[in-house]
C-alpha cells in the first residue's frame, strides 16, 4: 500500500458518493447511463468472486480486511445504483439517449479475456474479463454525454473523480514497479486505455467546469 494507491481508492469511493448524492439531491438519474452502471456492476461481481472463496488459509493482513470492505462497498453501491435507476427514479431515466450497444463490448472483452490471460481457469478468465470490461465501461456514459451535448456540474464531478482515480493508479503502478518489481501487463495496458478514454472529457472539464462554466460540448 502506498500513497498513490490509497488516494486512488479514496477518489473512487468519492466518485461513488458523488453519484449517489447527485441522484438523491436532484431526485433524478437524468444524464447517468444505466448501461455504464450495469457494466460496472458486472465488473465488480466478476472481479470480486474471491470474496466467496475461503479466507481460512490466507494470511490475514490489514490490507486483506481493507480489500474485503472495499469490495463489499463497490458491489453493494453499484447494485444499489441500478436499483435507484430502474425502480426509484425510473421516470427520470431517458433510454433514448443511452443507446450504446454494450453487447459488443461484453463480447469483445470476453473474447480478449479468453485469449489473453495469465491462467486459463474460470476465476482467472473472469478476473481478466473484469479488467478489460472496466477499461471500456465508461463508453456508454461518454456516448450519452456526446449525444446530449451537456451535463449537470455534479455529474461532471462524478465522471472526473471516476476517471482520475484510474490515472492515479498509473502512478501507483510506476511506484510499485520501482519499489517492488511489480509487473502486471494486463492491468497496466487496460488502465492506460481506461485513462486515455477520458482525455477529451478531462480537457473540457478543465476548460469549462473548473472555470465555473457549465459543461457544454463544443
Amino acid at each position: 500500500m502506498n500513497v498513490f494507491r490509497i488516494s486512488a481508492d479514496l477518489l473512487h469511493l468519492l466518485s461513488i458518493f458523488i453519484l449517489l448524492l447527485k441522484m438523491q439531491k436532484t431526485r433524478s438519474v437524468a444524464g447517468i447511463s444505466f448501461k455504464t452502471q450495469l457494466l460496472y456492476t458486472i465488473v465488480f461481481i466478476a472481479r470480486y468472486l474471491d470474496l466467496f472463496e475461503s479466507h481460512a488459509e490466507k494470511s490475514f493482513e490489514l490490507v486483506t480486511l481493507y480489500n474485503i470492505v472495499m469490495k463489499i462497498i463497490f458491489i453493494s453501491s453499484s447494485v444499489y445504483t441500478l436499483y435507484l435507476m430502474k425502480k426509484k427514479f425510473r421516470a427520470t431515466y431517458d433510454p433514448n439517449t443511452d443507446t450504446f450497444r454494450i453487447e459488443y463490448l461484453l463480447a469483445l472483452c470476453l473474447f480478449l479475456a479468453l485469449m489473453f490471460n495469465y491462467r486459463f481457469t474460470v476465476m482467472e478468465v473472469l478476473w481478466t474479463f473484469s479488467i478489460y470490461l472496466e477499461a471500456v465501461a465508461i463508453l456508454p456514459q461518454l456516448f450519452m454525454l456526446s449525444r446530449t451535448g451537456e451535463a449537470e456540474t455534479i455529474t461532471t464531478h462524478y465522471l472526473f473523480a471516476l476517471g482520475f482515480y484510474r490515472a492515479i493508479y498509473l502512478l501507483n503502478w510506476i511506484w510499485r514497479f520501482h519499489m517492488e518489481d511489480y509487473v502486471d501487463w494486463i492491468v497496466w495496458i487496460s488502465g492506460a486505455v481506461q485513462t486515455a478514454l477520458y482525455s477529451d472529457f478531462f480537457y473540457i472539464y478543465y476548460k469549462k467546469v473548473l472555470h465555473g462554466e457549465k459543461f457544454v460540448l463544443p
Binding site: M70, K71, R119, Y169, V183, V187
Partner: peptide
C-alpha cells in the same frame, strides 16, 4: 509476476 498470482489491488 510471481507464481502465486496474488491480486492485492481492487
Amino acid at each position: 509476476r510471481d507464481e502465486k498470482n496474488v491480486k492485492d489491488e481492487l
